[in-house]
Amino acid sequence: MSREEEFVKKLEERFGRRVRDPRIQRARRIFVEIDGKDLREVLTYVKNELGFDHISAITGLDVGEDIELIYHVAYENSIELSIKTKVSKKDPRIDTVADIYDPAGIYEREVHDLLGVVFEGNPDLSPLLLPDDWPSGVYPLRKDKSFEELRELVEKSGVSGK
């Protein structure tokens, strides 16, 4: 059994059907899906019990009704486990994991800026990438705003990038 298969087996033993669609895409790449309410429990487990001690990034995607979040965590800088979950676009909220993985704090700020997801418990969700005077409620990486609209917005509203 490969290390990847072992990790999937352990996740299934521990969380049963709460871990959905585990997929080993290729060597060193695992993808799984979970519910947002299980996020902290799963991440705590993979960090403390399985040794995934590094968070590479948090990816956010606009998938229509929902925002999909992918937490990419790494085992010995080798195996990347991507844990996917969804939050409703109407009320995009999820618990912070910055107390589990320190660097997650800054990655949550990035997703908060660009997709408007609120990470409850994150002490600092101030703008990281967008200008201080960026209009509220405009999230550049959501699909309802085209690249052209965003450019117009920047030019018209006098968003100065300061």
């Binding site: 800054i106 600092d124 200008p131 550049p140 690249f147 990038g161």
Partner: peptide
């Protein structure tokens, strides 16, 4: 220390979707 980046955020990820 408090950090703020993004001064030359160019929106490349969005541009790539287009």
């Amino acid at each position: 220390v408090r950090v703020r980046i993004g001064y030359i955020h160019r929106g490349i990820e969005k541009a790539m979707e287009n």
